[in-house]
């Protein structure tokens, strides 16, 4: 099906954006994805005044995967106001009259294999990179109008879940493989493919950034924490041992490192979501996918 964003009507787009911004200003938009209570709800459902996603395509000329991304980013950004603004911003970025259906495939290719932003940049095994190439080739074929069968997708999905099952739980590989496996659907057939991959990509990139920072400075801290714990225990401490409090008293220099590390971990998902928002905006505004 060929879509035409906002049915080629600039006034329709402007009226929609204006209405959504008023609702955001009145704090009448929900961040819960695809939520509608009959009178109000999420960005997408407020745009439709209902929750029938078929009308997202027929009345607004937008692909369903984009609906999930709009409400998804509103839900996942830590600051709800920023999240809602980001969701509305995605709708603003769609050029009137364009069919942005295939942007979903192009965007997944970017998240998988871009030298800077792609999962391939944080892979540790050749097997992961090879699988990414396989998935990218399917998305590329979809984007070029080529034939990709259900079996093609099932095969890469099986390979991806098998690869993830091999990774140690809560490792960077586990997070990266989780994002790779989420991208094994054609967004035009599976509407959650892009939003699911976005969420997993944020987890993977945050985890990779954190582990990368930790590998250099974590060991001395862990060593000292272990020593402080052992010493407190040897001295007969009967209360639960708060090693971080002991660290702050006895090694304020290392305590600062731990606090900085904690702050670093907390800010990674926010950084990743903002990066992701920028990447999708670029893709939606761009013309390279035509």
């Amino acid at each position: 099906m060929n879509l035409r964003a906002y049915q080629g009507d600039t006034t329709k787009k402007q009226a929609l954006l204006a209405r959504l911004r008023v609702l955001a200003e009145q704090e009448s938009l929900a961040t819960r994805p695809l939520f509608w209570d009959g009178t109000g709800g999420s960005i997408v459902c407020s745009a439709l005044h209902g929750d029938e996603l078929d009308r997202w395509e027929s009345e607004l000329g937008l692909p369903k995967w984009l609906a999930l991304c709009v409400d998804g980013i509103a839900n996942w950004m830590l600051d709800p106001r920023a999240g809602l603004a980001a969701g509305i911003g995605l709708l603003e970025a769609v050029p009137v009259g364009e069919d942005v259906s295939l942007v979903g495939n192009h965007f997944l290719i970017h998240l998988l294999d871009d030298p800077t932003d792609g999962l391939s940049s944080v892979c540790s095994h050749a097997e992961q990179v090879q699988l990414i190439k396989r998935i990218v080739s399917l998305h590329r074929r979809c984007a070029e109008g080529g034939k990709v069968t259900r079996t093609d997708w099932v095969d890469v999905r099986k390979a991806a879940t098998a690869l993830r099952d091999q990774a140690a739980p809560d490792s960077v590989d586990d997070a990266v493989n989780g994002a790779i496996e989420a991208a094994t659907w054609d967004p035009l057939i599976s509407r959650t493919a892009v939003s699911d991959t976005e969420y997993q990509w944020v987890l993977a990139m945050s985890e990779a950034a954190y582990r990368n920072s930790q590998s250099k400075k974590d060991d001395p801290v862990r060593l000292v924490l272990g020593q402080l714990y052992a010493k407190a225990k040897a001295e007969g401490c009967e209360k639960p041992i708060d090693v971080l409090a002991l660290l702050a008293q006895q090694r304020p220099d290392l305590s600062k490192v731990v606090k900085a590390s904690t702050a670093f971990i907390r800010e990674q998902p926010g950084i990743a979501w903002r990066r992701l928002e920028q990447l999708l905006l670029q893709q939606l505004r761009g013309r390279s996918w035509n």
Partner: peptide, 14 residues
């Protein structure tokens, strides 16, 4: 649970 909703909707259709 709320974030999972759209995924379950998609699964239910598939």
């Amino acid at each position: 649970c709320k974030a999972l909703g759209p995924v379950l909707d998609d699964i239910a259709d598939d």
